[in-house]
Design a protein around this nucleic acid. Structure first.
Length: 449
RNA sequence: GGCCUCAUCGUCUAGCGGUUAGGACAUCAGGUUUUCAGCCUGAUUACCUGGGUUCGAGUCCCAGUGAGGUCACCA
């Protein structure tokens, strides 16, 4: 089997986008499944959009998902070597490109009436930006390995794209052809938004005398709310945002891998290495998926439950300083109680809050006869020795039987009084962790106020 | 508007000419439990429309409709 070489080529203009993470994952799997190499190429050719520290942030995030690259390139470094200018000038020499001194236009602002043929193409200028001289009435086509079909254009619908800017930096259109050729990339995998500019690349590859790599365009990820492409303004789009919210990298990766790809047997749970092993280039989806967080929550729950108590406890510690300062035994006990019922690591903040902070209890949450329940419980507690709290459950059940308290109602009253909430960890165990003294204080406060 | 892509449950998807159209998430119901969660059972829900091709179409072809993307000296 031939070894594939793929690359992930982000521009360092911000944090890693969820779609970028997925593209990187697929490119990684594509290479690794074949035993080949995965490269990281930083596309920093736009001086103006550079964001300080973005490259480092991108690398750091990729590492969190164990997406490790075998080779690393930076386009601005390659630009300094003059690689792109040489290529662009070759095209000029061969009559496939021309110099242009027009100011740039935006079709949207021009009312979509901008002409595809640049007025400078026949002026014979000898300096300026270098643009592609698109031929007339030529069929341009390639086979897309994601869509599994031939996609084609008539060159008459392709505009004379800029290849080399006046600042000497290449645009993506030139850089992609030069770099992917130099780096011997076998498969270009990129976002669907690149599909419309593919004919430009086809031409550049051809004029450079290079073989066109296999090309595939993965689907766009759509927002569940708007049905539009995920937007930085409206949606959570950065991988780090999800990590910060308490999603595990393994879960996020697993969720994202199934947005746009599926195995024949419809298996859902994959670690990164399992994904690489089972990856199938024919498994790409062609329709744009929507990003629905419900399923991500489910994945996250699955992965949380796979964690050991100690591992989960550590994650809680890293997230919550109050929790971190508790004694080791309590932390482990709380972790065990929470493990089965949380969807995100950050749920410790809401579900576990009452452990280190007395709640403000909303009386409206109580049901009927709550004061009787509380007073009864208070009396039971008073009689139990602190070291003998294990008997608590039995004693409280006896109380219910004796006083004819409906069990469900009684324990709900306890939850509300102790935690201020109706959705809590197992309440008896929680009270044991809280200790006799604190529990008595909370019970007393609840029925006396 | 031009060009391109896409179309199976609410969502992610399996299907690749003959299936009771399958799975997962979500939802609902029952069980377990001390509430929720979890776990176990079960249920509801889908082939965009119209033409072809074919003995037979979710599956192939065409058209329509709808959705998304793109049209910069940004990537």
């Amino acid at each position: 089997m031939t070894k594939f070489r793929t690359r992930f080529a982000p521009s360092p203009t911000g944090f890693l986008h969820i779609g970028g993470l997925r593209t990187a994952l697929y490119a990684y799997a594509l290479a690794k499944h074949s035993g080949g190499d995965f490269l990281l190429r930083i596309e920093d050719t736009d001086q103006k959009r550079q964001v300080e520290g973005a490259t480092e942030a991108l690398q750091k995030t990729l590492n969190k998902f164990d997406l490790v690259w075998d080779e690393y390139y930076v386009q601005s470094e390659r630009q300094e070597k003059g690689l792109y200018r040489v290529a662009a000038e070759k095209l000029i020499k061969d009559g496939h490109a021309f110099y242009c001194q027009c100011k740039s236009k935006n079709a949207k602002e021009e009312g979509f009436s901008s002409v595809l043929r640049d007025p400078c193409r026949d002026k014979g200028l000898i300096e300026g930006a270098i643009k592609l001289k698109v031929p007339e009435n030529k069929m341009l086509s390639y086979r897309d390995f994601v869509h599994k079909k031939e996609i084609s254009w008539n060159s008459d619908s392709v505009y004379d794209a800029t290849l080399l800017k006046t600042d000497g930096f290449p645009t993506y259109h030139l850089a992609v052809a030069v770099d992917d050729t130099d780096m011997k990339i076998t498969h270009i995998l990129r976002g669907h938004d690149w599909l419309p500019s593919t004919p430009i690349h086809l031409l550049v590859f051809e004029y450079l005398g290079a073989k066109v790599p296999e090309i595939g365009h993965v689907t766009d990820i759509l927002s569940a709310e708007t049905g539009k492409k995920l937007s930085k303004r409206r949606d959570s789009v950065f991988a780090e945002q999800f990590l910060d919210q308490g999603y595990l990298p393994e879960a996020l990766l697993n969720f994202v891998m199934l947005l746009g790809w599926a195995p024949k047997d419809n298996r859902e749970l994959f670690t990164l290495s399992e994904f690489v092993e089972h990856f199938d280039i024919g498994g790409f989806q062609e329709a744009n998926p929507r990003f629905l967080v419900d399923k991500l929550d489910w994945f996250n729950g699955e992965y949380i439950r796979k964690l050991s108590d100690a591992e989960l406890c550590e994650k809680f510690e890293n997230l919550n300083p109050k929790f971190e300062t508790m004694d080791k035994n309590s932390k482990l006990e709380i972790t065990k109680l929470l493990k089965d019922r949380i969807k995100k690591i950050s749920d410790i903040n809401t579900l576990g809050k009452f452990f280190w902070e007395a709640p403000t209890v909303d009386k409206n949450l109580f049901g009927e006869n709550y004061k009787e329940h509380l007073i009864g419980a208070f009396e039971v507690f008073e009689k139990i020795e602190d070291g003998d709290l294990e008997r608590l459950g039995i004693s409280l059940l006896e109380l219910c039987d004796r006083k004819k308290f409906p069990r469900g109602d009684f324990f709900m009253t306890m939850r509300v009084a102790i935690t201020g909430q109706k959705f809590t960890p197992p309440i008896n165990d929680s009270m044991i962790i809280l200790g006799k003294e604190e529990t008595l204080v909370r019970l007393h406060k609840a029925f006396s106020s």
